[in-house]
Design a protein around this nucleic acid. Structure first.
Lengths: 257, 257
DNA sequence: GAACGCAATAGTGTCGACACTTTCTTGACG
DNA sequence: CGTCAAGAAAGTGTCGACACTATTGCGTTC
């Protein structure tokens, strides 16, 4: 079992530079971001046990900030903590993801309705402008940009609901499903449906048609859910294939692969 | 879990016993519970800066588990973290609370609808039984018990929705508004309204009347919101009066008293 | 006497070390 | 051969110490 800490974040530019006495500048926060990145990119694999020492070595900080970051990630649902055994990468079961999408749908529909009630015309116009500014170039961009713009669109609705808690919730949900959305986005059929959905949602917002807008959002999200089923399979393949099939088989022993 | 954390928690039986080498048994978790208790009981006051050293002394553990607990509390929204300045008790503004209640209403209504769709008859019956088992003694109990039973009722609905994310969200929200709910519960007008609401909700559940049940829930929660406004004032008085008025005045300088 | 530094103090952020627990290895026993 | 136990190794949980940053208090200057 030549473990070989291939976490490989040594080359993460946010760390490592200046091996000097620069003990400053919040290693905790950088550790958090780095680890989260490792998680969403499957460098740390679902179900896997996280070795703190290894991680701390590869990120070049002590275990303290690593643990702080992991604790944070635990209460955000990225990892789980078993006493005396450590942190584990949370398995992504199909149901788990669907639950998350369902929650997202609930939050977003509610946000939309509240926005219709509360936002003034200039605010609704901000939403329209946001979408119009990106709609033309939308499909011709790298996945990361598309994803960010899409999240921005939905997040803006949450903001215009006037309830910051909704924004917080949605952000957190977004972070957790981001990895799968990125994979989804690369499916070629995705873009056009996305565009027409968003345009229709903007239209409903301008008309302040809360019911219809919420319905569109729900459908918009549900539409992606069915695609998610397939994307999830792709993801699992992508994650476990590189090494070999044995890995997958081994994982099966535990709950929810 | 009966840990009574008088900020001078040296006398907290969950700690301190056996000053032996018993370095075992998760100080972090206990610190988390203790600090959260201090927060909901206003032993640590809104806006106040939290002194880690002091806390660690009074809880009898080192700063490490204190910090882990605080980080957790931070991502749950109880406290906020300003780099290099430390943790602050999150101020409770009126809007902040209303936002939280609104979120709660959203989650619970959605949970109820999902429960109507998905739960089988025996599960719905569990809800009915839960309520019938406590309805008779409900008002004649100490506030903590009433609160726990009430939360249990609503949490059960979330569970029966079949979506564990909803349970998690609701738990977290409950924890954050618990302190104000406890104060509310002591208002004498509270009980009867609570009882009739819950009974009606159970009835709707049995009939699987999703729309009506959600409406009842929404009203049930909104009803408490108006009471919350007053309860909040009471709470602030209760918090700041004991010392003296100057404290209150000082806080005013910062945002949202 | 008010504004400005500047030293002293208090407090956070991170580290390395060590105690305790879990997991792995090895070897005796059936 | 498989099972189990004892010891070794690996890993987590917590601690005390120190580096660095913010704050406070004091003396100096205008």
């Amino acid at each position: 079992m030549t473990e070989r800490a291939e976490i490989g974040a040594d080359n993460d530019p946010s760390f490592a530079s200046e091996a000097e006495t620069r003990r400053t500048a919040d290693s905790s926060e950088r550790a958090y971001l780095s680890i989260r990145k490792l998680l969403v990119e499957f460098k740390l694999k679902p179900g896997e046990r996280i070795n703190e020492v290894q991680l701390s070595r590869s990120l070049g900080v002590s275990r303290t900030p690593i643990r702080e970051a992991l604790n944070r990630l635990a209460s955000e649902g990225f990892v789980s903590l078993t006493p005396n055994r450590g942190f584990f990468v949370r398995s992504l079961s199909t149901e788990g993801l669907l639950d998350l999408y369902e929650l997202r749908s609930i939050i977003e529909c509610a946000a939309f309705k509240l926005m219709c009630e509360r936002a003034d015309d200039s605010e609704i116009d901000r939403l329209r402008q946001y979408w119009e500014a990106i709609v033309d170039v939308y499909p011709n961009q790298p996945p990361d940009i598309i994803l960010a713009e899409d999240e921005g669109f939905h997040l803006l609705i949450a903001e215009l609901s006037g309830n910051p808690e909704l924004v917080g919730q949605l952000s957190s949900i977004n972070a957790r499903i981001r990895f799968i959305r990125r994979i989804q986005i690369e499916h070629p059929s995705h873009d056009k449906a996305q565009i027409t959905s968003h345009s229709a949602i903007v239209e409903a917002a301008v008309k302040r048609d809360a019911e219809n807008g919420a319905k569109l959002l729900r459908e918009h999200i549900e539409m992606t859910v069915s695609a998610t089923q397939q994307a999830l399979k792709d993801a699992l393949l992508k994650v476990f294939a590189p090494d070999n099939g044995a890995e997958l088989k081994r994982r099966r022993r535990g709950r929810e692969g």
